[in-house]
């Protein structure tokens, strides 16, 4: 297995940012979470992954980020600028919004002045200006998630990994943040790999939906999504959208049994 974050970033040679080939993951306790997963994420793509709980979706992201090495197959990552948004906001409760957003730059040794500016910009991007001095415990769930997003944005990622980031939020906040995310995606030009439990969210956000089976997880189907960006919220009420959601749900049910 190779993880190759190419240091010289030959951006012009290929559009590919992430490639899994026959990736499998068996944990030391014998649980096989993934088997034979092959998937490529290119520049300009926003790929969403749906699959039953416990099928190895989080594991797939952890492998992509380098947190856990896969036990089999090839994992190739063609950028060193990876953003990773967890299901929880994972903010440090003793730091205010500004300094939470600065954290990653700080860990990378970016000078104070520069990271203050970068963080400020990211905070503006997620619509949190005015809340710089607020501590996490005074923020709503949605605002915490925005802070977490801003924190990853400071890395100016080329590849953005999302592990059910809005799963714990209410419907209205979730839809709002989906639109924010689409705006960021069109403005910031990162590629996304986004995990969700919600078929509707998967279709709404993505250029391609991947459907995974139950454990051991493998890819059972994929659906390109052709709606233009930035997405019009009203596509949710069109027949094509409903049809696509239906197909994804169907594939999900088939893969589950």
């Amino acid at each position: 297995m190779t993880i190759a974050p190419s240091p010289v970033a030959p951006a012009t040679t290929t559009d590919q940012l992430l490639r899994f080939e026959n990736v499998a993951m068996t944990f030391p306790n014998g649980t096989t979470a993934l088997s034979g997963v092959s998937l490529t994420v290119n520049r300009g793509e926003f790929v969403t992954v749906v699959g039953p709980s416990g099928c190895g979706k989080s594991t797939l992201l952890r492998i992509a980020s380098g947190l856990t090495p896969a036990t089999e197959g090839v994992t190739q990552v063609d950028t060193s600028r990876i953003g990773y948004v967890f299901q929880d906001a994972t903010l440090l409760p003793w730091r205010d919004v500004q300094s939470n957003v600065e954290l990653l730059a700080e860990l990378n040794g970016i000078p104070k002045k520069q990271r203050t500016a970068t963080a400020k910009e990211a905070i503006d991007l997620v619509g949190l200006s005015g809340f710089e001095k607020h501590l996490p415990k005074t923020l709503s769930g949605g605002m915490k998630m925005r802070t977490s997003l801003a924190r990853s944005l400071t890395l100016n990622p080329e590849l953005f990994l999302f592990d059910e980031p809005f799963g714990a939020l209410d419907e209205i906040t979730r839809e709002r943040l989906n639109d924010e995310l689409i705006r960021l995606f069109t403005e910031q030009q990162f590629a996304g790999l986004f995990i969700t439990h919600s078929v509707s969210e998967a279709v709404y956000l993505s250029t391609r939906v991947i459907v995974m089976s139950g454990r051991p997880g493998h890819i059972v189907d994929e659906f390109p999504v052709e709606f233009p960006f930035p997405r019009d919220p009203d596509i949710r009420f069109t027949a094509e959208y409903a049809e696509l959601c239906g197909k994804v749900s169907h594939a999900l049910r088939e893969g589950h049994s």
Binding site: L67, F86, T90, L92, L107, N108
Partner: peptide, 26 residues
């Protein structure tokens, strides 16, 4: 919190950094 720990690991933070910026304040 393991998630916070991973946040630091992803940036390849050293032991001392993790101790002073994460573990000790927590």
């Amino acid at each position: 919190d393991p998630g916070q720990r991973e946040l630091f690991q992803l940036q390849r933070a050293g032991r001392w950094t993790i101790l002073t910026k994460l573990e000790f304040p927590a």
